[in-house]
Design a protein around this nucleic acid. Structure first.
Lengths: 193, 193, 193, 193
DNA sequence: TATGAATGAGCCTTCATTCAT
DNA sequence: TATGAATGAAGGCTCATTCAT
């Protein structure tokens, strides 16, 4: 159906150009659909963007949460989250960039707010996991929200680096680094009280 | 002089609106200068943007590097870097966002490349510091470039969180968290071989 | 039936928004009918508009003419015309506005011509009444077509004023003013040869 | 200058097509100016329209008021007003139509309100003249606002008729009819107490 | 008889850029 | 060195109309 073609095309175009440089013309062209058709299915550019982002996020979010239900050890959970995030960041690069980076540039503010909500929701979810770990005494006494936010940035930035330097190391190494960084930090000989 | 007024105004406007939403009209208005004057001093929007970003980055970069010259212990250096980064992120929020986030949204690609170069240069600088630590056996055997990239994302994201939740903790706490996270990681009881 | 629902809805929508601002979408929505259905029953927007206007006009016109058949005195006829016109203008405000004001704004010219014909036909009818009066020596020696046209404008404009200033006087007063204006004019002491 | 060309062209185009059918493209074309130039001089279509209407109205209004200052007899004033109105309606047909007819069709409501204000202002002015006459006992005891509103409609409609039937009578006859209609009404033999 | 997805021409507006002065 | 009027390509959006079902 047209709507599906539009969504697929919109993901491509938004991912490649970012919100502002993406044009409805381009999306229509890419979807092999008349421009008016975009407006038959979506009220406007901002809403189309929002739909795409929220739908995509929902899928990913559900996938992650579903695997996390089991009462695993926190280490195991961290490992899985890292893996899923890499899946997200590496497989849907453009999409991830949208959600995690492009939350400021003049999108209609109601749409913007919802997108920010998505990110916050994800951070909250991570923070919840960490919180449990903290209560169990597994973690240093940190602010879990802050830690979650930091982790998201760490993941994002590392993946970006990985993507632009694909030969420096492999995905395995990336996962390992992230796990190390999050759990034991970079330093070897500092007292780990 | 006109040029200086333009630069000052451009920093304000680009910071507030981001590259795309910032208009030459707005910059001219804010600089109290005719629109044509912008084009007398700069070849175009992209070049003006580039000038601002690179100049600003140079200043910051110099400041950081100068303090780092002394052969301090890595821990101390990390602490200083954290502090300087927070200065940068918190005092020049818009500017930092430009450099660290808006490197994708369809800026002329030659300008974009140079901006990416800035970020890479900064990561290289950080990586260099870490590299020394690694050689000295202070660090886990990680890819220092990757670690540096990750740290930048960690810093950015944490600051963002701090800015949008100013009451959850203070800057002192933020610095401490970052130091902990980078050096010893989140986990308490993991072997820190 | 669909067609009736469409007509009813179209009257509402055209009356409220005027020809141009009225959209086929809105009409379909208001008629609780699919948009395509409009085009099943009517060739297009202009034709739908025309149908509505002409049908509506026919009804009103018939009503007036039927009451006028009796060979009443001209004064009595004038009074009745005033009353019927007020009914028309006040009860079907939007409709009247369409017929009397919106005959210029770029409706398809064939439709436009027919609408103009309606107005002219009504003016002719009025003029015919006046003509008889003139022949009987009841009226000043005026061009009856012109007088009829003037009366229509007078009625329209007065009603508009009445509608936007409902508290200044009542309908009774409005009728009386119109009767005075048409029959004896505004001035008291001018020789009425 | 461009601005003057634009105004002249806009008067033509708005007059010919009415607000909605007039397009900025057409105006630019007619003004032999790039479309962007319209937006350099005016914030938008609605504002351009408003500017034209209000400026034009001011000119006419001033002209009429200036001639009316002398303390003439009311009959003389009526005659002059009729003459000036005919000038307005006949010389600036499109313009007059804009002001007196197109006050409903979905123009931005703030602009619309100002246009309505113009019309009301003119009616008030007329009403003021009539009021004096009424106090002097020259007029029947009518609501002068209503009478003024009615006169405007009468003038408008008569002129319209005159324009579409140029051969039926001459301007002289038109003026005479209006004067008769306003002062003594249509009827001959009614007591003119 | 009725639907509603799809169309595409046309509209208003924005904005980086140019150029004569 | 500075101006600001003018440009025109490009963008988002509306809406009457068509057509396969």
């Amino acid at each position: 159906m047209s709507k599906d073609k539009i969504i697929a095309a919109a993901i491509d175009v938004f991912s490649e150009y970012g919100y502002h440089r993406a044009s409805m013309d381009e999306i229509a062209l890419s979807a092999q659909v008349a421009k008016g058709t975009l407006y038959y299915h979506f009220p406007g550019k901002a809403q189309l963007f929002k739909t795409i982002v929220m739908d995509g996020f929902q899928v990913i979010s559900d996938r992650i949460r579903s695997e996390m239900e089991a009462c695993l050890a926190l280490e195991e959970q961290i490992q899985r989250i890292i893996r899923h995030n890499l899946d997200l960041f590496l497989e849907s690069r453009g999409f991830a960039r949208i959600v995690f980076n492009e939350l400021s540039n003049g999108i209609d503010s109601d749409v913007l707010d919802e997108l920010k909500g998505l990110k916050e929701g994800y951070i909250d979810f991570l923070a919840g996991l960490l919180e449990e770990g903290r209560k169990d005494g597994v973690l240093h006494p940190v602010n879990c929200q802050l830690a979650a936010a930091g982790i998201v940035g760490l993941l994002d930035s590392s993946c970006n680096y990985y993507i632009s330097h694909p030969d420096a190391f492999d995905r395995e190494g990336l996962e390992q680094f992230l796990y190390t960084m999050i759990t034991t930090g970079l330093f070897k000989n500092i007292d780990n009280r």
